[in-house]
Design a binder for these strands. Structure first.
Lengths: 324, 324
DNA sequence: CTGAAAGCGCTTACAG
DNA sequence: CTGAAAGCGCTTACAG
C-alpha cells in the first residue's frame, strides 16, 4: 500500500506553490545565502505542510555525500535501562545538532547474514563492543566510517581500583574478584580484574583470588562454598558487576554467611535493583554527563573528518549501602 | 579524513575490470536474468574486492524507492537484556531476508529536536511504545511507513490472568496488584491490572486491591506496611514485573514478613536476577519463538505493502520458584 | 530574487 | 552477452 502511492516530492511542492524546486529547497533548508521574500517563503512552507512533504532522505544523502546517522554498536548483554538512559542523553545532544542516534545490537559474522552496512550508511560508528576481537573489529571496519570507542582501558580498570580502595578503607585485608561465567564479557571482566590487581598493589594487599560465580542459584552457592573452603572470612568481594553481586548475595544467604560482617560485597553499575537486594548493595556508579559532552564533540568532529580529542576516563563514585 | 578520499563507485570497478557499470551491477546483485560468463563474473568480483567496493546505500535506496531497514522504536525503560535477546533473534531472521534491524530508543516530541525520519528511511516500523499516546502516535506516523505493533492488548492482559490463576491454584483467596510508580509504563500496568481483574472474576475472587510499590527501598517498605495495615495475611501479590517484585520482597524482608507463607509474590518477565532474589522469585516467562516467526512474516509482508496477518498472543508460562 | 541544469551512485529496461 | 542511457529526489553552483 505504501509502495503504490507515489511519494510527495519537492517537485510537487514547487508546482503547487508556483516556484521552482530550487526555491523550495532554499526555503525548507533556510539557506542563509538566499533572500526569499517572506510571502513566497510562507506560501512554500504552507504548501509543503498541506502536502505532507518530507524530503526523501536517501536522495539528500546521495547529494550531500554523507549522512547524519550515528550508529551505536552494542552486544545484547550490555543492553540495560542504564545504558539506554546514557545513550538517550547522547541522542538528545546529537539531535540538537541534526544527527540521529540509532542502535545496532549484535554482531553477525556468520555467512548468509546481511551486513547492516548494506542497508545503512552511518556517518560515524560508536563502538561499545570488544574491538580486540578480530571478527568484531572487521565487522565494524566494513562500515568504512570513523569508529569511536566508548570505553577506554583506563576507565575499565578504574572500576576495580575503586572497589579495592573502598574495601581497604573499610579494613578489608583479603580481596576476592568475583568473575562472571559468560564468555562474551570476559574482555571487560579481565580489564576490571586488572584494576583490582593494581588496587591490591597500591594498598599493599596480597593479590586477589579469582572466583568465577555463575549467574544461577546452585552454581553461585557452590562457588561460594568453594571459596569458603579455601579462604576463611572475613574478606571482601569485588564483583564484576551488580548481577554477579546478586549471585554472591544469594549464595551467602543460602550458606547463612553474614554480609557484610563475614563477606563484604561490592558491585558495579548501580542497577535500579541494587538498593533492593538483601542486604542492599554497595556498588559503583558512573557520572556520564561530562564524558557524554566530550563524546558528542568527538562524534561531530569525526563526522566532519576532523581529528578526535583524547578520551576522558568516566568519572565514577561509590554508592555506600549495607553490603560492604 | 573519510570525507576527503573519494568514494569507490561501481564506475571504478567497471573501469578497472574493463566492463560497463551495468555488468558490474548484474554480477554483484547476481541478476538471474543475465548470463554473464564465469570468467567476467570472477574478474569483476575480484576487482570489487580489491578496490574495497561497497555499493553506496542511499543511491541504491533512491533508485529502488525503498530501503531494507526495519526500525524498532522503544522507550528506554523497556530496554533490557531479555528484550535485546528477542530482538536479536528477530534481527537474525530478518538479516536472512536481506533486511537490517536497528533500534531507535526514545521518542522526542520537543521542538528543536531532529526527527529521526529526517535522517533515516525505514521500510517498516516495529513499535513497542504506547501508541494510545497522541504524541507518540504522531511521532511514529511521521516516518510515513507501515507500523507494526509488537504487543497486543490480549497478550498484555494474559499476564495478569496467568498470575491470578497460579495464585488461586495455590489456595490464595485475596489478590493484591503491585503497581509501578513510574508514569511512563502505566499503560502497560493498566493492561496487566485488567488481566488481574478478569482473573479474579474467573476464579470467583474479590476484586484485587491495587497498591503502588515504589522502586526504592523506603518507599517500598512504606507501601507494604500500608498494605499490611489494611489487609491481614495471607494474600497473594501479582506484581507488574520482576522489578516491582524485588521491591516487594525487599520490603517483606525489612518488615519480617514471611514469603510465601504470609505474602505470596509473583513477578513477570523472568529477568536473569529472578532466581537470585531472597527468596527466589516465582514469575512469568514468555516464549517468543513462534511469535517472532509471525512478526517476521508480517514485517516482510508490510515492506511489500501486503496485508498483515492477525497478531498472535505471546505464549507464556509460569516459572515456579519459592516466592509463591 | 528565481529558475534551468548538473550530478550524487545506483539499477534496469532497452538496444544492439 | 554487453553497454549507453534514463531516472530515482535532492541540493547548489550558475546564469539571468
Amino acid at each position: 500500500m505504501e509502495r503504490e502511492q507515489r511519494r510527495v516530492t519537492s517537485e510537487d511542492v514547487a508546482r503547487a506553490s508556483g516556484v521552482s524546486r530550487a526555491t523550495v529547497s532554499y526555503v525548507l533548508n533556510n539557506d542563509p545565502r538566499q533572500s526569499i521574500p517572506l510571502e513566497t517563503r510562507e506560501r512554500v512552507l504552507k504548501v509543503a505542510r498541506e502536502l505532507g512533504y518530507r524530503p526523501f532522505t536517501p536522495a539528500r544523502i546521495l547529494r550531500a555525500g554523507y549522512s547524519r546517522i550515528v550508529l551505536v554498536v552494542l552486544q545484547f548483554e550490555m543492553v540495560d535501562p542504564a545504558m539506554a538512559r546514557s545513550l538517550k542523553e547522547l541522542e538528545a545532544a546529537l539531535a540538537g545538532k541534526g544527527f540521529s542516534l540509532i542502535w545496532y545490537v549484535g554482531v553477525h559474522t556468520a555467512s548468509g547474514h546481511i551486513h547492516p552496512s548494506a542497508n545503512l550508511t552511518p556517518a560515524v560508528i560508536v563502538s561499545l563492543v570488544d574491538e580486540t576481537d578480530a571478527d568484531i573489529s572487521e565487522f565494524l571496519r566494513q562500515f568504512n566510517v570513523p569508529i569511536l570507542s566508548m570505553n577506554s582501558e583506563t576507565s575499565r580498570q578504574a572500576v576495580g581500583k575503586a572497589q579495592v580502595s573502598y574495601l581497604a578503607g573499610r579494613g578489608q585485608r583479603r580481596i576476592i574478584f568475583a568473575a562472571p561465567e559468560r564468555r562474551d564479557v570476559q574482555w571487560l571482566a579481565q580489564a576490571r580484574l586488572d584494576g583490582v590487581r593494581q588496587g591490591c598493589v597500591e594498598h599493599a594487599l596480597e593479590p586477589p583470588t579469582v572466583q568465577v560465580v555463575p549467574a544461577f542459584r546452585i552454581g553461585a552457592r557452590e562457588a561460594i562454598m568453594h571459596l569458603l573452603a579455601q579462604q576463611s572470612p572475613p574478606f571482601g568481594v569485588c564483583c564484576y558487576n551488580d548481577e554477579v553481586a546478586f549471585a554472591v548475595l544469594a549464595a551467602c544467604s543460602d550458606a547463612s554467611t553474614q554480609v557484610p560482617e563475614q563477606i563484604a560485597v561490592i558491585g558495579c553499575d548501580d542497577i535500579p535493583l541494587a538498593q533492593l537486594s538483601i542486604p542492599s548493595l554497595t556498588t559503583i556508579t558512573f557520572d556520564d554527563s561530562h564524558w557524554l559532552a566530550t563524546l558528542t564533540e568527538n562524534i561531530l568532529a569525526a563526522s566532519r573528518g576532523e581529528p578526535i580529542r583524547e578520551e576522558l576516563p568516566k568519572p565514577l563514585s561509590i554508592v555506600v549501602r549495607t553490603s560492604a
